[in-house]
Measured scan of single mutants.
Amino acid sequence: FDIYVVTADYLPLGAEQDAITLREGQYVEVLDAAHPLRWLVRTKPTKSSPSRQGWVSPAYLDRRL
């Protein structure tokens, strides 16, 4: 999967189903980028939180090589 970094805090609107909150600087794996406005991502697990999966706007993501 492609690795992206979150460029700004992402707080989903209440109406968005299956969306997750992301923090600036967080790394995520993009699982599904087929839709231009919503990408399915999975967060990297940390010592304090397990990995999470949900939909985010790709405008908040920047690809890492």
Rank of each mutant, 00 (worst) to 15 (best):
F1Y: 14
D2G: 12
I3N: 04
I3M: 09
I3A: 04
I3P: 03
Y4A: 07
Y4K: 01
Y4V: 03
V6L: 04
T7E: 02
T7Q: 05
T7W: 05
A8V: 08
A8N: 07
A8W: 05
D9S: 06
Y10M: 04
L11R: 11
P12K: 06
P12V: 08
P12R: 06
P12M: 04
L13D: 15
G14Y: 12
G14R: 11
A15V: 12
E16L: 09
E16Y: 08
E16I: 08
Q17L: 13
Q17W: 13
D18E: 09
D18K: 05
A19V: 08
A19K: 07
A19M: 10
I20Q: 03
I20A: 03
L22A: 01
E24S: 11
E24F: 11
G25E: 01
Q26A: 06
Q26G: 03
Y27H: 09
Y27G: 03
V28K: 00
V28C: 03
E29W: 15
V30Y: 01
L31H: 02
D32Y: 09
A33Y: 11
A33T: 09
A33D: 10
A33V: 05
A34E: 10
A34L: 09
A34C: 11
A34W: 07
H35L: 07
H35S: 15
P36A: 08
P36S: 08
L37P: 04
L37K: 09
R38K: 10
R38S: 07
W39D: 00
L40F: 09
L40A: 01
L40Q: 03
L40K: 04
L40M: 05
V41L: 01
V41S: 00
R42L: 04
T43C: 06
T43F: 05
T43P: 02
P45H: 07
P45T: 07
K47L: 13
K47P: 14
K47F: 11
S48Y: 13
S48R: 08
S49H: 12
P50W: 04
P50T: 07
P50M: 07
S51D: 03
S51V: 10
S51T: 09
R52A: 11
Q53C: 11
Q53H: 06
G54T: 05
W55L: 03
W55C: 04
V56P: 00
V56A: 05
V56T: 04
V56F: 03
V56R: 00
S57F: 04
P58F: 02
A59E: 12
Y60L: 06
Y60C: 05
Y60I: 10
D62T: 15
R63P: 10
R63T: 07
R63E: 07
R64N: 11
R64D: 13
R64G: 10
R64F: 15
L65F: 14
L65G: 13
L65T: 14
